[in-house]
Amino acid sequence: MNILYTSREQVQVYKFNLPAAIAIPLLAVFFQSFVSVHFFWLTIFDLPLLVTIFFAVSRRHPVAGLMTGGIIGMLQDSLTHLPIGVYGIAKTVVGYIGSSLGVKLDVENPGSRFLMTFAFYVLHQAIFFVIARGMVGQALVFRWGHLLVGAVANAFLAVPLFAILDRARSRS
């Protein structure tokens, strides 16, 4: 993979070994499903989305990012009773934009990670809402307050989670 450049400095591209690339998304989906048995309020966190964002901005390759997002989203879809593809489409778009932005922005800084996650959460929920309501016919209600709380919560979780996941990557 070619090292990409911005106008200011060299941008580092990271890679993940195969076990980590498979295990981390699966673990995210697993915890999302398991933890909410006992603590339903934890469903406000979207671990698969955070992992999608992390892989996308680390690899900085749009095709890899969108494929990762699509697969994670479809895994998440298959645990719901909704048609497969609702989360898939939303996370495909997030993966693509995340990897494209990763080339241009500094995504190693905790502050930028916070803001980036906040924005991606809102984008993800907006796409999900449009697909679920427009194509699947779900009678969803757009709740702004809930959306903002979710975005802030996920952004706060993203900072320490990304720091932990940083250990699983290696420089390309």
Partner: peptide, 25 residues
């Protein structure tokens, strides 16, 4: 626009998949 083309193809595939499921649950 290779990346954008792949994105469009993947999205189209998922939308078709979704439409099929909605049409024939």
């Amino acid at each position: 626009h290779k990346n954008l083309s792949v994105l469009a193809a993947v999205l189209l595939l998922q939308i078709v998949l979704l439409a099929v499921q909605v049409k024939r649950p």
